[in-house]
C-alpha cells in the first residue's frame, strides 16, 4: 500500500499567497483551472497573461507568469499587441462580464472577428463585483442590483447579453464554449474547456473563448452554497452550457 498525492496546489499558483476574493467566489476556482492548464501544458515560462479591470484586476498576484495590465475592457487589444509581436508565446486574457461584455464589447468582437490566436477566459457572474454589485450587461431580467434595485427591467435596461452565442455567429473565431463552476461535475468540464482553449492556441488554431458561469455570493446577497444553487437554478437556464463553435 502506498499513498499518492492526487490533487495538489498548482505550481503556477503564486506560492504562499491568499487571494483577496470573498469566500466562495468562483474567480478562485477559475484561476485554479487556468493554473492547472498552464501546469499540465508546461507553458508557465511561455505564457503572458493580460489582466482586466474588475475583481480579477489583481489576477497577476495569483498566477506566476509574465503579466500585462489592460485598461477596462481593452484586454483583447493588449493581447493582440502582445501576440502580434510574440506569436511564439501563449497569450490569454481573463475578463469579467462588465469588462468584456460592456465597456470592452468592441475589443472582444473585433479580436474574435480577426480570429486572433489568443485565449479568452470570460467570467460571467451577472453583476459588477468590484464596484459593489451594480447591474451588468449580463444581469438577468428581474435580478436585483444596486443600480436596478427593483430588478432588471427589459423596457429600461434591455436584455442580458449572451456573449458566446453572439460571438459564435462570426466566421473567424474557432472555439467558443460556455461552462460553469457551480458543481464539481461542471467544474471538471470547465477545466477541460479551458485547457482545450490553451491547446488550440499552442496548435495555432486561432481565437478561443471560454465563458465561465460563476458566482458572486457577496453581491448576490447569498451564502456561497446557496449562490451556486442559484447559479444552477436561475442562470444556467438563460445561459445554457455547451460548445457553440469548434475548430473540428
Amino acid at each position: 500500500m502506498s499513498e499518492v498525492k492526487i490533487y495538489a496546489r498548482p505550481v503556477s499558483w503564486m506560492p504562499d499567497v491568499s487571494s483577496h476574493y470573498c469566500p466562495g467566489c468562483g474567480h478562485g476556482i477559475a484561476h485554479r483551472l487556468v493554473c492547472e492548464s498552464i501546469d499540465e501544458l508546461g507553458i508557465q515560462n511561455d505564457t503572458i497573461g493580460v489582466a482586466s479591470v474588475g475583481c480579477s484586476a489583481m489576477i497577476y498576484d495569483y498566477i506566476d507568469i509574465d503579466y500585462c495590465e489592460a485598461p477596462h475592457g481593452r484586454a483583447p487589444a493588449v493581447a493582440t499587441g502582445l501576440k502580434t509581436v510574440r506569436p511564439d508565446k501563449i497569450v490569454f486574457t481573463y475578463q469579467g462580464d462588465g469588462d468584456l461584455a460592456s465597456i470592452g464589447m468592441g475589443e472582444i468582437v473585433h479580436a474574435a472577428n480577426r480570429g486572433q490566436n489568443i485565449t479568452v477566459v470570460f467570467i460571467n457572474n451577472a453583476i459588477y463585483g468590484m464596484t459593489g454589485g451594480q447591474m451588468a450587461p449580463t444581469t438577468l431580467l428581474g435580478q436585483k442590483a444596486t443600480t436596478c434595485p427593483l430588478g432588471r427591467d427589459e423596457k429600461v435596461n434591455g436584455y442580458p447579453i449572451r456573449v458566446s452565442e453572439m460571438l459564435a455567429t462570426l466566421p473567424a473565431p474557432g472555439y467558443i464554449a460556455r461552462v460553469s463552476v457551480a458543481q464539481p461535475k461542471y467544474t471538471i468540464k470547465a477545466k477541460a474547456a479551458i485547457k482545450k482553449a490553451f491547446q488550440n492556441q499552442i496548435d495555432g488554431k486561432g481565437f478561443s473563448l471560454v465563458e465561465v458561469l460563476s458566482s458572486c455570493p457577496t453581491n448576490w446577497g447569498m451564502r456561497p452554497v446557496e449562490s451556486f444553487d442559484w447559479l444552477i437554478s436561475t442562470m444556467m437556464p438563460y445561459y445554457p452550457l455547451g460548445t457553440f463553435k469548434d475548430f473540428d
Binding site: E3, A8, Y21, C25, G28, I29
Partner: peptide, 22 residues
Amino acid sequence: IGCALCAVTCPDAAIEVFKTEE
C-alpha cells in the same frame, strides 16, 4: 474516499488530496 471533489471545488486551492493505493 479520495474523490477530490472538495479540491476541485475549492476557490482558494486550500485542499490537497491523497489516496492510498492497494
